[in-house]
Design a protein around this nucleic acid. Structure first.
Lengths: 239, 239
DNA sequence: TCAATAAAGTTGTCTGACAACTTCATCGAC
DNA sequence: GTCGATGAAGTTGTCAGACAACTTTATTGA
């Protein structure tokens, strides 16, 4: 029924079981975990393995340990927010995360329009020129595109924005790389040029210190990007 | 100079050192960590401690281990995004996170307006009535307010939004509780009524399937909230 | 009844050992 | 000389036992 364990790693097996008990609610906040002795017995592993598993769960913020007393399920309020790397296979999950990214970037553009320093605007402009250069070189300019968006996030003056984007960018920018394979060179050039036009409009909004315009421009830019990706998802599902 | 270690926990001490080496760039992605033997020697702890520290770092996604080969700094692209619970003392950090929340909630309102099912809209309306009831009972309705925002996040149909909000809500809703202490009862009632009026406008936008209006309403609502908090921060700093 | 004390239980740390696997140098055949 | 096989050394994974530090509970005594 349960099948063989997917991993040879004993620590992960113990982690998986305890993690499931916690997240599944069988062990509520504040509940005490089985003692190390009980776990070694019930799972047939050594204390070393149990302790490493608990150490990992502690690092995840799921449990706290009290010497002499036991290990307890942590208050969820104290555990940090995490977004695991979405499985590349799960298109739905990727789309969900992309929407979250859109939310963050749209506001970032508006904040950048309100607060960007001259230096930061110059950095954004430079990133835009880097994309131009890469495009003229026949490149997809994926890295340059990402750097451009990061420059805007930096210009918010809010450290959470670049942090968030830096994470998402690593996972959720299959844009060009995924898409370019299915297009003709002519379509591709047209597509990249339109992208760059959209970028230009975003920069104009920020430079003009017009948050509403910056927001609109970024929103349209990312909505189109999302829409393309959604079509791709539909296509790969239907046919 | 460095002072005594803040923790008695040896595992955390080793984690702190390795984590600092990694995040500080002294150990770049792909770099190999010192062997367990070297770490036991250089830090004067047992192998047990070193192994638990490495297990924790692995759980954090900072390190991957290869049996027979060594432990390596993970590709940052594979490590999950985390927002640690902001220190309550650090007002600037809280404001930063609140801006991130604003970004997410504004888009959530728009998505809810596009996609909410009848059932979801009913849930939002019910949450709104719960706030009403609590207010009439003389309560601050903090929990009910949070539930209202969560209901909107649910109505996006995107699981990432409620997840994100569920985390932030636990940390960043000192709104009323902080503020109410400094106001007269009359001011307080007026304030809460205006909040509720803003809520009503958000619901109207969502019900009318008008994303632009829902977005505007939510944006104004949260911007005011943020502004109040900013003033509070200024006040507590200046005087 | 209540406080001090003892005992049992639990996590934290140390030590030593072996298994499983990787890496690299050495050696031998061609 | 080149290339593959072999073996040794090094490294992580797991097990076992022990003691220290601390908490909780039960016992005892006033």
């Amino acid at each position: 029924m349960t099948g063989k364990p997917r991993t040879n790693n004993l620590v992960e097996r113990v982690m998986a079981r305890l993690g499931a008990d916690i997240r599944g609610g069988r062990l509520g906040p504040g509940a005490r975990l089985p003692t190390e002795q009980e776990l070694t017995a019930s799972m047939g592993v050594s204390r070393t393995v149990v302790r490493e598993a608990v150490a990992a769960l502690r690092a995840d913020g799921l449990v706290v340990t009290r010497r002499g007393s036991g290990a307890y399920v942590a208050d969820p309020a104290a555990s940090p927010f995490r977004i695991a790397a979405p499985h590349a296979a799960d298109l739905g999950e990727i789309l969900d995360v992309m929407e979250l990214r859109l939310a963050v970037e749209v506001e970032a553009a508006a904040l950048a329009a309100e607060r960007a320093t001259r230096k930061q605007i110059a950095a954004i402009r430079m990133a835009l020129r880097s994309i131009d250069r890469a495009l003229r070189g026949g490149d997809g300019a994926v890295a340059e595109d990402f750097a451009f968006h990061c420059a805007i996030a930096e210009a918010t003056g809010n450290r959470q924005f670049p942090r968030f984007l830096a994470f998402l960018g690593n996972h959720v920018i299959p844009r060009q790389s995924v898409r370019l394979a299915v297009d003709t060179p002519a379509e591709r050039r047209a597509y990249l040029e339109r992208i760059q036009h959209e970028h230009g409009r975003i920069v104009a909004g920020i430079s003009a210190e017009d948050p509403a315009e910056a927001r609109r421009a970024m929103h349209e830019h990312l909505t189109r990007s999302l829409e393309r990706y959604r079509n791709l998802a539909r296509r790969s599902v239907d046919g």
